[in-house]
Design a protein around this nucleic acid. Structure first.
Length: 417
DNA sequence: CGTCCACAGGAATGACGGGCGG
DNA sequence: CCGCCCGTCATTCCTGTGGACG
Protein backbone atom coordinates (compact mmCIF):
# COMPACT_ATOMS: atom_id res chain seq x y z
CA UNK A 1 0.00 0.00 0.00
CA UNK A 2 2.62 2.37 1.09
CA UNK A 3 5.02 1.36 -1.64
CA UNK A 4 2.15 1.52 -4.10
CA UNK A 5 1.39 5.13 -3.34
CA UNK A 6 5.09 5.94 -3.51
CA UNK A 7 5.23 4.39 -6.93
CA UNK A 8 2.33 6.56 -8.02
CA UNK A 9 4.16 9.54 -6.68
CA UNK A 10 7.19 8.77 -8.79
CA UNK A 11 5.01 7.98 -11.75
CA UNK A 12 3.59 11.47 -11.36
CA UNK A 13 7.01 13.07 -11.38
CA UNK A 14 8.09 11.16 -14.46
CA UNK A 15 4.86 11.82 -16.30
CA UNK A 16 5.06 15.47 -15.51
CA UNK A 17 8.56 15.47 -16.90
CA UNK A 18 7.64 13.63 -20.07
CA UNK A 19 4.34 15.27 -20.90
CA UNK A 20 4.94 18.59 -19.24
CA UNK A 21 5.50 21.81 -21.06
CA UNK A 22 8.99 20.75 -22.20
CA UNK A 23 11.09 23.69 -21.18
CA UNK A 24 14.17 22.53 -23.07
CA UNK A 25 14.65 21.71 -26.68
CA UNK A 26 18.36 20.99 -26.31
CA UNK A 27 19.96 21.81 -23.01
CA UNK A 28 23.44 20.75 -24.15
CA UNK A 29 23.68 24.08 -25.92
CA UNK A 30 23.90 25.81 -22.54
CA UNK A 31 26.68 23.63 -21.15
CA UNK A 32 30.12 25.18 -20.70
CA UNK A 33 31.90 22.82 -23.11
CA UNK A 34 29.56 23.44 -26.03
CA UNK A 35 31.30 25.11 -28.97
CA UNK A 36 28.79 27.24 -30.85
CA UNK A 37 29.12 27.68 -34.60
CA UNK A 38 28.56 31.39 -34.35
CA UNK A 39 30.40 33.57 -31.85
CA UNK A 40 28.83 37.02 -31.52
CA UNK A 41 31.03 39.98 -30.63
CA UNK A 42 34.23 38.08 -31.18
CA UNK A 43 34.57 38.86 -34.88
CA UNK A 44 37.68 40.90 -34.28
CA UNK A 45 39.46 38.13 -32.38
CA UNK A 46 38.32 35.52 -34.89
CA UNK A 47 39.72 37.53 -37.78
CA UNK A 48 42.98 38.29 -36.05
CA UNK A 49 43.60 34.70 -35.05
CA UNK A 50 42.67 33.41 -38.48
CA UNK A 51 45.04 35.97 -39.99
CA UNK A 52 47.89 35.01 -37.69
CA UNK A 53 47.44 31.29 -38.26
CA UNK A 54 46.68 31.37 -42.00
CA UNK A 55 50.33 31.00 -43.16
CA UNK A 56 50.26 27.38 -42.04
CA UNK A 57 47.97 26.63 -44.95
CA UNK A 58 50.89 27.31 -47.24
CA UNK A 59 53.14 25.16 -45.12
CA UNK A 60 55.07 27.95 -43.46
CA UNK A 61 55.30 28.42 -39.74
CA UNK A 62 53.02 31.02 -38.20
CA UNK A 63 53.81 33.25 -35.24
CA UNK A 64 53.30 31.95 -31.75
CA UNK A 65 50.27 33.52 -30.13
CA UNK A 66 49.51 34.44 -26.59
CA UNK A 67 45.85 34.86 -25.77
CA UNK A 68 44.59 36.30 -22.56
CA UNK A 69 41.32 37.34 -20.99
CA UNK A 70 39.23 36.50 -17.95
CA UNK A 71 37.09 33.39 -17.60
CA UNK A 72 34.01 33.24 -19.76
CA UNK A 73 35.23 35.67 -22.39
CA UNK A 74 35.18 33.09 -25.17
CA UNK A 75 38.90 32.37 -25.52
CA UNK A 76 38.57 28.62 -25.67
CA UNK A 77 35.51 28.65 -27.90
CA UNK A 78 37.12 31.05 -30.36
CA UNK A 79 40.40 29.17 -30.67
CA UNK A 80 38.63 25.83 -31.01
CA UNK A 81 36.40 27.24 -33.70
CA UNK A 82 39.29 28.76 -35.65
CA UNK A 83 41.33 25.57 -35.39
CA UNK A 84 38.45 23.36 -36.55
CA UNK A 85 38.01 25.48 -39.63
CA UNK A 86 41.71 25.78 -40.24
CA UNK A 87 42.36 22.05 -40.01
CA UNK A 88 39.40 21.36 -42.22
CA UNK A 89 40.69 23.80 -44.81
CA UNK A 90 44.18 22.36 -44.47
CA UNK A 91 43.01 18.83 -45.14
CA UNK A 92 41.08 20.01 -48.18
CA UNK A 93 44.15 21.58 -49.68
CA UNK A 94 46.48 18.84 -48.51
CA UNK A 95 48.58 20.92 -46.15
CA UNK A 96 50.54 18.74 -43.67
CA UNK A 97 48.84 20.20 -40.68
CA UNK A 98 47.61 18.99 -37.32
CA UNK A 99 46.34 20.67 -34.17
CA UNK A 100 46.42 19.62 -30.59
CA UNK A 101 44.46 21.09 -27.73
CA UNK A 102 45.64 20.55 -24.16
CA UNK A 103 44.15 21.93 -21.00
CA UNK A 104 47.24 22.35 -18.84
CA UNK A 105 45.39 22.61 -15.56
CA UNK A 106 43.62 19.30 -16.16
CA UNK A 107 46.76 17.64 -17.49
CA UNK A 108 48.61 18.78 -14.38
CA UNK A 109 52.22 17.93 -15.19
CA UNK A 110 54.73 18.60 -17.96
CA UNK A 111 54.77 14.90 -18.67
CA UNK A 112 51.05 14.62 -19.29
CA UNK A 113 50.96 17.78 -21.40
CA UNK A 114 53.69 16.36 -23.59
CA UNK A 115 52.06 12.96 -23.88
CA UNK A 116 48.85 14.68 -25.03
CA UNK A 117 50.75 16.44 -27.79
CA UNK A 118 52.34 13.12 -28.74
CA UNK A 119 48.90 11.55 -29.04
CA UNK A 120 48.06 14.15 -31.66
CA UNK A 121 50.94 12.73 -33.72
CA UNK A 122 49.63 9.21 -33.21
CA UNK A 123 52.43 8.40 -30.81
CA UNK A 124 51.82 5.97 -27.95
CA UNK A 125 53.32 7.19 -24.68
CA UNK A 126 53.06 5.13 -21.48
CA UNK A 127 51.22 7.02 -18.77
CA UNK A 128 54.36 6.94 -16.65
CA UNK A 129 57.84 5.54 -16.59
CA UNK A 130 59.68 7.71 -19.11
CA UNK A 131 61.83 10.71 -18.40
CA UNK A 132 60.31 13.97 -19.66
CA UNK A 133 63.36 14.53 -21.84
CA UNK A 134 62.88 11.13 -23.46
CA UNK A 135 59.26 11.88 -24.29
CA UNK A 136 60.33 15.17 -25.74
CA UNK A 137 62.95 13.49 -27.95
CA UNK A 138 60.39 11.00 -29.25
CA UNK A 139 58.01 13.86 -29.88
CA UNK A 140 60.54 15.73 -31.97
CA UNK A 141 61.56 12.59 -33.85
CA UNK A 142 57.94 11.82 -34.74
CA UNK A 143 57.37 15.39 -35.83
CA UNK A 144 60.40 15.33 -38.09
CA UNK A 145 59.52 11.96 -39.57
CA UNK A 146 56.03 13.08 -40.49
CA UNK A 147 57.02 16.53 -41.71
CA UNK A 148 54.07 17.97 -39.89
CA UNK A 149 53.29 21.42 -38.78
CA UNK A 150 51.73 21.00 -35.36
CA UNK A 151 49.67 23.72 -33.73
CA UNK A 152 49.77 23.26 -29.98
CA UNK A 153 47.14 25.00 -27.91
CA UNK A 154 48.05 25.22 -24.25
CA UNK A 155 44.90 26.29 -22.43
CA UNK A 156 45.07 27.57 -18.84
CA UNK A 157 48.80 27.68 -19.23
CA UNK A 158 49.17 29.94 -16.19
CA UNK A 159 48.13 27.03 -13.97
CA UNK A 160 50.96 24.86 -15.28
CA UNK A 161 53.56 27.61 -14.94
CA UNK A 162 52.54 28.33 -11.38
CA UNK A 163 52.72 24.67 -10.45
CA UNK A 164 55.66 23.41 -12.48
CA UNK A 165 57.64 26.37 -13.73
CA UNK A 166 58.32 27.33 -17.33
CA UNK A 167 60.81 24.64 -18.39
CA UNK A 168 58.37 22.86 -20.69
CA UNK A 169 57.35 26.11 -22.30
CA UNK A 170 60.98 27.02 -22.78
CA UNK A 171 61.75 23.71 -24.44
CA UNK A 172 58.70 23.87 -26.68
CA UNK A 173 59.34 27.43 -27.73
CA UNK A 174 62.79 26.54 -29.01
CA UNK A 175 61.86 23.12 -30.40
CA UNK A 176 61.95 24.45 -33.95
CA UNK A 177 65.68 25.05 -33.72
CA UNK A 178 66.31 21.31 -33.51
CA UNK A 179 63.79 20.25 -36.12
CA UNK A 180 64.63 19.62 -39.76
CA UNK A 181 61.28 18.95 -41.34
CA UNK A 182 58.62 19.34 -38.68
CA UNK A 183 57.48 22.61 -37.17
CA UNK A 184 55.53 23.59 -34.08
CA UNK A 185 53.53 26.71 -33.40
CA UNK A 186 52.40 27.53 -29.89
CA UNK A 187 49.15 29.09 -28.82
CA UNK A 188 49.08 29.88 -25.12
CA UNK A 189 45.89 30.80 -23.32
CA UNK A 190 45.82 32.38 -19.89
CA UNK A 191 43.15 33.74 -17.56
CA UNK A 192 45.68 35.58 -15.50
CA UNK A 193 46.87 38.86 -16.94
CA UNK A 194 49.79 39.18 -14.55
CA UNK A 195 51.16 35.77 -15.26
CA UNK A 196 53.54 37.13 -17.88
CA UNK A 197 55.69 38.36 -15.02
CA UNK A 198 56.38 34.77 -13.99
CA UNK A 199 57.87 33.90 -17.37
CA UNK A 200 61.48 33.85 -18.40
CA UNK A 201 61.88 36.86 -20.72
CA UNK A 202 63.14 34.63 -23.54
CA UNK A 203 60.06 32.42 -23.29
CA UNK A 204 57.84 35.45 -23.12
CA UNK A 205 59.26 37.10 -26.23
CA UNK A 206 58.99 33.84 -28.13
CA UNK A 207 55.46 33.04 -26.99
CA UNK A 208 54.00 36.47 -27.46
CA UNK A 209 55.11 37.18 -31.00
CA UNK A 210 51.43 37.99 -31.31
CA UNK A 211 48.98 38.80 -28.55
CA UNK A 212 45.22 38.70 -28.63
CA UNK A 213 43.20 40.15 -25.79
CA UNK A 214 39.67 39.11 -24.91
CA UNK A 215 37.84 41.85 -23.07
CA UNK A 216 34.91 40.94 -20.80
CA UNK A 217 31.53 41.07 -22.50
CA UNK A 218 29.26 44.03 -21.82
CA UNK A 219 25.65 43.50 -20.80
CA UNK A 220 24.22 44.07 -24.32
CA UNK A 221 26.81 41.68 -25.77
CA UNK A 222 25.91 39.03 -23.24
CA UNK A 223 22.28 39.57 -24.13
CA UNK A 224 22.99 38.79 -27.79
CA UNK A 225 24.90 35.65 -26.88
CA UNK A 226 22.16 34.47 -24.59
CA UNK A 227 19.41 35.15 -27.11
CA UNK A 228 21.23 33.14 -29.71
CA UNK A 229 21.75 30.15 -27.47
CA UNK A 230 18.34 30.41 -25.88
CA UNK A 231 16.74 30.06 -29.30
CA UNK A 232 18.39 26.65 -29.66
CA UNK A 233 18.13 25.54 -26.07
CA UNK A 234 14.58 26.38 -25.07
CA UNK A 235 11.22 25.53 -26.54
CA UNK A 236 9.22 28.32 -28.12
CA UNK A 237 7.55 30.74 -25.78
CA UNK A 238 8.93 29.55 -22.46
CA UNK A 239 11.39 32.42 -22.20
CA UNK A 240 10.61 36.10 -21.99
CA UNK A 241 13.02 38.83 -23.00
CA UNK A 242 13.08 39.97 -19.40
CA UNK A 243 14.57 36.69 -18.22
CA UNK A 244 17.40 36.85 -20.73
CA UNK A 245 18.07 40.49 -19.90
CA UNK A 246 18.22 39.70 -16.21
CA UNK A 247 20.76 36.92 -16.72
CA UNK A 248 22.87 39.21 -18.88
CA UNK A 249 22.70 42.02 -16.34
CA UNK A 250 23.71 39.79 -13.44
CA UNK A 251 26.66 38.29 -15.31
CA UNK A 252 27.79 41.65 -16.62
CA UNK A 253 27.78 43.06 -13.11
CA UNK A 254 30.25 40.39 -12.15
CA UNK A 255 33.01 40.03 -14.75
CA UNK A 256 31.19 39.88 -18.05
CA UNK A 257 31.48 36.13 -17.77
CA UNK A 258 29.43 34.42 -20.48
CA UNK A 259 29.78 31.02 -18.85
CA UNK A 260 28.14 32.40 -15.74
CA UNK A 261 25.31 33.91 -17.74
CA UNK A 262 24.67 30.64 -19.54
CA UNK A 263 24.77 28.73 -16.26
CA UNK A 264 22.17 31.06 -14.83
CA UNK A 265 19.92 30.53 -17.79
CA UNK A 266 20.31 26.76 -17.72
CA UNK A 267 19.74 26.40 -13.97
CA UNK A 268 16.75 28.76 -14.14
CA UNK A 269 15.31 26.53 -16.85
CA UNK A 270 15.95 23.42 -14.80
CA UNK A 271 14.21 24.95 -11.80
CA UNK A 272 11.18 25.82 -13.89
CA UNK A 273 11.17 22.31 -15.34
CA UNK A 274 11.38 20.70 -11.91
CA UNK A 275 8.52 22.78 -10.60
CA UNK A 276 6.44 21.93 -13.63
CA UNK A 277 6.07 25.55 -14.68
CA UNK A 278 5.30 26.44 -18.25
CA UNK A 279 7.51 29.51 -18.35
CA UNK A 280 10.85 30.56 -16.98
CA UNK A 281 10.40 33.68 -14.86
CA UNK A 282 12.62 36.28 -13.23
CA UNK A 283 12.04 34.48 -9.95
CA UNK A 284 13.54 31.31 -11.38
CA UNK A 285 16.61 33.29 -12.36
CA UNK A 286 16.99 34.74 -8.90
CA UNK A 287 16.57 31.31 -7.34
CA UNK A 288 19.08 29.97 -9.81
CA UNK A 289 21.55 32.57 -8.66
CA UNK A 290 21.13 31.43 -5.07
CA UNK A 291 21.28 27.79 -6.01
CA UNK A 292 24.51 28.15 -7.98
CA UNK A 293 26.11 30.03 -5.12
CA UNK A 294 24.84 27.56 -2.56
CA UNK A 295 26.02 24.55 -4.57
CA UNK A 296 29.44 26.14 -4.77
CA UNK A 297 29.60 26.71 -1.02
CA UNK A 298 28.35 23.20 -0.24
CA UNK A 299 31.02 21.74 -2.49
CA UNK A 300 33.72 23.83 -0.85
CA UNK A 301 32.61 22.91 2.67
CA UNK A 302 32.40 19.20 1.91
CA UNK A 303 35.94 19.01 0.59
CA UNK A 304 37.53 20.96 3.44
CA UNK A 305 40.23 19.16 5.46
CA UNK A 306 39.08 17.81 8.84
CA UNK A 307 40.74 20.45 11.00
CA UNK A 308 39.38 23.29 8.89
CA UNK A 309 35.94 21.80 9.35
CA UNK A 310 36.45 21.62 13.11
CA UNK A 311 37.58 25.23 13.27
CA UNK A 312 34.55 26.23 11.26
CA UNK A 313 32.33 24.09 13.44
CA UNK A 314 33.72 25.84 16.50
CA UNK A 315 32.80 29.23 15.08
CA UNK A 316 29.38 27.86 14.19
CA UNK A 317 28.85 26.68 17.77
CA UNK A 318 29.90 30.06 19.10
CA UNK A 319 27.36 31.71 16.86
CA UNK A 320 24.75 29.25 18.18
CA UNK A 321 25.68 30.60 21.63
CA UNK A 322 24.90 34.06 20.26
CA UNK A 323 28.47 35.17 19.87
CA UNK A 324 28.44 36.73 16.41
CA UNK A 325 32.05 37.79 16.33
CA UNK A 326 34.78 35.76 17.95
CA UNK A 327 38.52 36.27 18.25
CA UNK A 328 41.30 33.88 17.39
CA UNK A 329 42.06 32.88 20.98
CA UNK A 330 38.45 31.91 21.75
CA UNK A 331 38.08 30.06 18.46
CA UNK A 332 41.20 28.10 19.28
CA UNK A 333 39.87 27.28 22.73
CA UNK A 334 36.59 25.91 21.40
CA UNK A 335 38.39 24.07 18.61
CA UNK A 336 40.75 22.40 21.09
CA UNK A 337 37.79 21.24 23.15
CA UNK A 338 36.10 19.73 20.11
CA UNK A 339 39.30 17.85 19.29
CA UNK A 340 39.52 16.52 22.81
CA UNK A 341 35.91 15.41 22.70
CA UNK A 342 36.62 13.48 19.52
CA UNK A 343 39.96 12.15 20.71
CA UNK A 344 41.88 13.94 17.97
CA UNK A 345 45.20 15.71 18.49
CA UNK A 346 44.60 19.44 18.06
CA UNK A 347 46.82 21.55 15.84
CA UNK A 348 48.80 24.46 17.23
CA UNK A 349 47.38 27.94 17.46
CA UNK A 350 49.77 29.09 14.76
CA UNK A 351 48.36 26.55 12.36
CA UNK A 352 44.74 27.28 13.32
CA UNK A 353 45.46 30.94 12.66
CA UNK A 354 46.61 29.89 9.20
CA UNK A 355 43.47 27.81 8.66
CA UNK A 356 41.32 30.79 9.62
CA UNK A 357 43.11 32.82 6.95
CA UNK A 358 42.52 30.11 4.36
CA UNK A 359 38.81 29.99 5.25
CA UNK A 360 38.73 33.76 4.86
CA UNK A 361 40.27 33.58 1.40
CA UNK A 362 37.65 31.13 0.14
CA UNK A 363 34.93 33.34 1.58
CA UNK A 364 33.58 30.97 4.23
CA UNK A 365 34.67 33.37 6.95
CA UNK A 366 35.02 37.13 7.15
CA UNK A 367 37.94 38.29 9.22
CA UNK A 368 39.44 41.61 10.20
CA UNK A 369 42.57 42.38 12.22
CA UNK A 370 41.67 44.62 15.15
CA UNK A 371 43.44 46.00 18.14
CA UNK A 372 41.84 45.73 21.55
CA UNK A 373 44.43 48.04 22.97
CA UNK A 374 45.35 46.90 26.44
CA UNK A 375 43.79 43.54 25.61
CA UNK A 376 46.03 42.85 22.68
CA UNK A 377 45.90 42.64 18.94
CA UNK A 378 43.88 39.88 17.36
CA UNK A 379 41.56 38.92 14.53
CA UNK A 380 37.79 39.27 14.53
CA UNK A 381 36.12 36.30 12.88
CA UNK A 382 32.56 35.84 11.73
CA UNK A 383 30.77 33.33 9.55
CA UNK A 384 30.53 34.24 5.87
CA UNK A 385 27.85 31.67 5.01
CA UNK A 386 24.40 30.97 6.45
CA UNK A 387 24.33 28.71 9.50
CA UNK A 388 21.76 26.49 7.80
CA UNK A 389 24.24 25.55 5.06
CA UNK A 390 26.92 24.65 7.57
CA UNK A 391 24.49 22.59 9.57
CA UNK A 392 23.24 20.76 6.48
CA UNK A 393 26.72 19.90 5.25
CA UNK A 394 28.26 18.97 8.60
CA UNK A 395 25.39 16.83 9.86
CA UNK A 396 26.41 14.17 7.34
CA UNK A 397 30.08 14.42 8.22
CA UNK A 398 31.60 11.38 9.95
CA UNK A 399 33.57 13.41 12.48
CA UNK A 400 32.12 16.87 12.62
CA UNK A 401 28.57 15.54 12.76
CA UNK A 402 29.34 14.21 16.22
CA UNK A 403 30.18 17.60 17.72
CA UNK A 404 27.63 19.70 15.88
CA UNK A 405 25.36 19.83 18.93
CA UNK A 406 28.13 19.71 21.51
CA UNK A 407 28.16 22.61 23.96
CA UNK A 408 31.75 23.60 24.73
CA UNK A 409 32.50 24.08 28.42
CA UNK A 410 34.07 27.46 27.84
CA UNK A 411 30.74 28.72 26.45
CA UNK A 412 28.45 27.21 29.05
CA UNK A 413 27.86 29.92 31.64
CA UNK A 414 29.06 33.25 30.33
CA UNK A 415 29.06 34.64 26.88
CA UNK A 416 32.44 36.11 26.12
CA UNK A 417 33.00 39.69 25.12
C1' DC B 1 53.62 58.89 26.93
C1' DG B 2 55.38 54.48 27.67
C1' DT B 3 53.87 49.81 28.53
C1' DC B 4 52.34 45.56 27.42
C1' DC B 5 48.58 42.44 25.88
C1' DA B 6 47.37 38.85 22.52
C1' DC B 7 47.86 37.86 18.98
C1' DA B 8 49.57 38.47 13.45
C1' DG B 9 52.27 36.45 10.39
C1' DG B 10 57.32 35.48 8.46
C1' DA B 11 61.18 31.99 8.40
C1' DA B 12 63.28 27.76 9.27
C1' DT B 13 62.70 23.15 9.93
C1' DG B 14 60.54 18.54 10.23
C1' DA B 15 57.25 14.60 8.90
C1' DC B 16 55.00 12.37 5.27
C1' DG B 17 53.31 10.72 0.98
C1' DG B 18 53.31 10.31 -3.79
C1' DG B 19 55.33 10.78 -8.20
C1' DC B 20 59.64 10.98 -11.04
C1' DG B 21 63.71 9.20 -13.00
C1' DG B 22 67.07 5.75 -13.34
C1' DC C 1 60.93 -1.57 -8.76
C1' DC C 2 63.37 1.35 -5.54
C1' DG C 3 65.49 5.34 -3.90
C1' DC C 4 65.31 10.11 -4.27
C1' DC C 5 63.23 14.36 -4.52
C1' DC C 6 59.71 17.55 -4.22
C1' DG C 7 55.41 19.54 -2.58
C1' DT C 8 52.28 19.85 1.28
C1' DC C 9 51.04 20.28 5.83
C1' DA C 10 52.36 21.13 10.46
C1' DT C 11 55.38 22.77 14.31
C1' DT C 12 58.63 25.78 16.54
C1' DC C 13 60.54 30.03 17.19
C1' DC C 14 60.42 34.43 16.31
C1' DT C 15 59.77 39.56 15.57
C1' DG C 16 56.25 43.08 14.90
C1' DT C 17 52.39 45.97 16.30
C1' DG C 18 47.73 49.16 17.37
C1' DG C 19 46.00 51.24 20.93
C1' DA C 20 43.56 51.17 25.90
C1' DC C 21 45.25 51.57 30.24
C1' DG C 22 47.84 53.43 33.97
Amino acid sequence: MNSCSRKDLLEDVFDKFLQGPGIFQDREVLRPDYVPSHLPHREEQLKRLAGILAPVLKGSRCSNVFIYGQTGTGKTAVIRHVLDRLIHKGHESGAPLEACYVNCRLAGTDYRVLSRTCEALGLEIPFTGLAVGEVFDRFKAALDAREFLLLIVLDEIDALIKMRGDTLLYELSRANENLKNGRVALIGISNDLHFKELLDPRVLSSLSEEEVVFRPYSAPELRDILFERAKLAFSNGVLTDGVVNLCAAIAAAEHGDARRALDLLRVAGELAEREGDAKVTDDHVRHAQEKIEQDRVVEVLKTLPLHSKLVLCGIYLMKQAEINESITGDVFEVYTELCEHLGIDPLTQRRVSGLINELDVIGVLNTRVVSLGRYGRTKRVRLGVPRSVIKAVFTDDTWVGRVLTYVPKCLQHNGAR
